[in-house]
């Protein structure tokens, strides 16, 4: 639901503070513990929660400290990850949830079915790291049409020529991978990141969702 995220950002802007977005891997180390972790996040200061969907391919951007293998060993499936969100939502209507992971489990689950179930479980956005903008018809556009944000990654190698394409259909927020490589493996230089954020802000005047709505009339 995009409204929940819009409201969260509007409220934070009114308070004059940035959002703290936190990530954890669904099902790691087991279902109950990760549900407890998720429930504890808002009172610990998390404004937006990223819920990791386990996939054993530790490929470009997923953090080394999230352990898909341990989640998968515990029998975590995409359906169970959605269930974690649903159970969380029963007690929290305000904290936006963004599911983050790789495309294949969603593709196998079925895109339409996944989006319907995600919406029903109170999901507000998706980060799917192996779907570039060239593949927007796969999941990004269907998600936007169902009112789920599609959040895209930009990296230090996403130059000014590529950025407009990357941001074209994105919504919610932009995920800036502030260093080349696996996030969390080293600390980036904040001054360099600051410059990059300014550069990206120069490209984010209108979100993809707003543009899509405008096109739909």
């Amino acid at each position: 639901m995009t409204a929940r995220m819009d409201k969260r950002f509007a409220d934070l802007a009114a308070e004059g503070r940035p959002a703290l977005v936190t990530y954890f891997m669904g099902g790691d180390p087991d279902f109950d513990t990760s549900l407890a972790i998720m429930k504890a996040l808002p009172s610990a200061g998390s404004d937006i929660i990223e819920l990791g969907m386990p996939f054993p391919i530790r490929w470009p951007t997923v953090r080394p400290f999230s352990l898909p293998a341990s989640a998968l060993k515990g029998g975590q499936t995409l359906a169970k990850t959605l269930e974690i969100a649903r159970r969380f939502r029963e007690g929290d209507q305000d904290t936006p949830i963004v599911m983050m992971g790789y495309y294949n489990p969603i593709y196998i689950y079925g895109v339409e079915r996944f989006l319907d179930d995600a919406l029903a479980c109170g999901i507000d956005g998706l980060i799917v790291v192996d779907l570039p903008p060239e593949m927007d018809d796969e999941l990004c556009i269907p998600a936007l049409k169902k009112d789920i944000n599609f959040i895209r990654l930009a990296t230090p190698t996403t130059d000014d020529k590529r950025l407009p394409k990357v941001l074209e259909n994105t919504s919610g927020f932009v995920y800036y991978v502030s260093m080349n490589g696996i996030t969390g493996s080293a600390l980036p230089d904040p001054t360099v990141v600051g410059g990059a954020v300014q550069r990206i802000k120069g490209h984010t005047k209108t979100s993809g969702l707003r543009r899509l709505r405008r096109q739909d009339g």
């Binding site: 495309y103 294949n104 489990p105 689950y109």
Partner: peptide
């Protein structure tokens, strides 16, 4: 069919899309 390593192709995977 599934998506792995940046391409859609035939894969060995389970019913949950895990490789």
């Amino acid at each position: 069919p599934g998506v792995l390593h940046g391409n859609r192709t035939y894969l060995l995977q389970d019913s949950d899309g895990q490789i």
